[in-house]
Simulated assay, not measured.
Amino acid sequence: MAGLVVIVDILRFRAGFAELAYLNLVLVWGLAFMSGFFYSDLVRAPRQVDAALLWAGLFGLVGLSYAFAGRLGEREVPDLVRWLERPLYIGVSLLCTVPVIWLFGRFGHRRPTVPAPA
């Protein structure tokens, strides 16, 4: 399904099919919905998997925030205001994830820790 999202995005932006925006919306929300079915597997996974997914998600969030704040495809030379807006956009998008991290940390299913063998 993620491959379909990428293909629809390429067709929409490169080929100029603006009507595919609605199909892209359905596919992206469907992908998010389907990923919820794997939540229980993620809860039972080792902590290394949790940490790897956390860092991959944060890396992706920063990269996408920077890319969208940079307005991909612009050909003009940015001025000072434009360069000062970019860190603000990135900071606001990262700040919006703090309540989500707090909620999952507070109400998420915690695995019991196993004491180390002596």
Rank of each mutant, 00 (worst) to 15 (best):
G105L: 07
V98I: 15
V114L: 07
D9R: 14
R44S: 06
V81E: 11
G3W: 15
V92F: 10
I7G: 01
A51D: 06
W102F: 14
G57P: 04
L80S: 10
V5C: 15
F38H: 12
D9E: 15
P87F: 06
A118E: 14
E19Q: 15
A118M: 10
L61I: 06
R86H: 03
P117K: 11
W102N: 07
G63C: 02
V8L: 14
G91R: 08
L61D: 00
L20N: 01
V6I: 13
E19P: 01
I7D: 02
E85Q: 13
Y66M: 08
A15C: 07
A52V: 15
P112L: 09
V77L: 11
F68H: 10
G30A: 07
F33Y: 13
V49N: 04
E74V: 11
G108N: 05
H109L: 03
G105F: 07
V92R: 11
Y22S: 12
V77Q: 06
F13M: 03
V49W: 14
F107Y: 15
Y89S: 12
H109D: 03
G63E: 00
L94D: 03
G16D: 01
W83T: 09
R12E: 08
F33V: 12
G30V: 11
L72P: 00
V77Y: 00
G108Q: 03
E19W: 13
W29F: 14
T97D: 05
V28S: 10
W102A: 15
L31A: 14
E19L: 09
L88R: 09
V49P: 01
G91P: 06
R14V: 13
A116G: 09
L84W: 07
F17K: 12
R44E: 15
G105K: 04
H109C: 03
F13W: 05
V5Y: 02
